[in-house]
Amino acid sequence: MIIVNNRDKLEWKNGMTVRDVLSAMGHVYPLITVTVNEELVEEEDYDTRKVPDNSSISVFHLAHGG
């Protein structure tokens, strides 16, 4: 089981990547920052970075304004 944003639960699958998690959660924001177990994952690695079972993933949505 994977926990996303300390709230949502997602069933873990063998070989699951960060991209798979984002797709499964329906994240559509164009600008996000992602961590897996508190470690930053850069965008170029979303397709290849494997997510271990029992991971905690954070997806920060970045919105304009400051």
Partner: peptide, 14 residues
């Protein structure tokens, strides 16, 4: 998440 901290609603924009 670790040393990344974000404040706000993460939705509303400019």
């Amino acid at each position: 998440s670790g040393n990344i901290i974000v404040c706000g609603d993460e939705i509303t924009d400019i």
